[in-house]
Design a protein around this nucleic acid. Sequence first.
DNA 1: GTCTATAATTCGATAGAC
DNA 2: GTCTATCGAATTATAGAC
Lengths: 194, 194
Amino acid sequence: MDTRERLIESAQALLWERGYVGMSPKAIQDRASAGQGSMYHHFENKAALASTAIARSAEQLYASARKEFTQPCSALDRIVAYLNRERDALRGCRVGRLTQDPEIIADPQLRQPVQEMFAKLTQELASLIVEGQKAGEFSAEMNPEDTASTILAVLQGAYVLARAANSTEPYDRAIAGAISLLKHQGGVKRASRK
Amino acid sequence: MDTRERLIESAQALLWERGYVGMSPKAIQDRASAGQGSMYHHFENKAALASTAIARSAEQLYASARKEFTQPCSALDRIVAYLNRERDALRGCRVGRLTQDPEIIADPQLRQPVQEMFAKLTQELASLIVEGQKAGEFSAEMNPEDTASTILAVLQGAYVLARAANSTEPYDRAIAGAISLLKHQGGVKRASRK
DNA sequence: GTCTATAATTCGATAGAC
DNA sequence: GTCTATCGAATTATAGAC
């Protein structure tokens, strides 16, 4: 693997572990086994390298979610599979994590890939919910975009709870609770409709 | 207000905005209008001051949640009121935010108040759900602890979505979706029970 | 492309005067 | 209690040799 590539992957890992503020050029170089001059040859500065690394992480995460969303099973099952996908709860989300960084939020270049990834995931989930509504899996009263946001929020928040507790238990509980709510929703309306 | 107090409040604000890694002693002193010597007179080091500040933020947040949990209305209404409470979505949660900080998670002294706050909020919410089940507001099939974790996760994750989008919209949507799921859950089971 | 040298600034803290 | 002086290390680069 060439140096430029190693620098990007090194930055991706450090952004995940320590965020933009906590990631020093020295640390990037050490992890990539690259010298000072090497890094500044390939990237103008820390922000430029971070921008490349963030965009790549967002694309990778979106691509792996797409796989879950396009499985050949019911919409509800695909959403449940997405929620149940193996994740390293204690490490957190490598893209969601970046939203806590003031310098990333303040810089449109750094924030844009993050914004785009969540916007696209929301749209995919909302489409799945519409599909599920047509199939009778979800109540027609359900707002697809609201519910899509709720699903993403549960995932992101579950990471927070896991890290606070230093345990995966609250993560697993939050996911289980969300799945239960999704599976048992709308019944009142459906039941009353006869 | 005395210097020690100003230092704590200054640290609370900086931890919220920039996290532990992004908060420098210099910044704390400047915001508190205190000198270097002053800070190191009142606190052994940066970690000791941060520990005091984190504990205070966690207590304040828990106290304000308690108010919502003890209103004189139904359990469901209290949960909905808690979810709907005015929050500055773009600023994020001043306690949840800390879970992204590697140095806070690694140091039991710094993490403990965060862990405790979420554990207590989970217990309070779980109790409310049990109360709601007894009153017939929630399905008896619902797992109180799971659902309590889901509710906290939605809130924490909604902040993430808001900051990613630089807009309160996904926050509002996530909350609305969660409330809708809570209100319309369990109907199938109840209906089938006759 | 990669390396080493240099540099201004900040970080996190200590020492000691007042 | 608060202040200024000082400190070694790290940060975020730039310059220029190879």
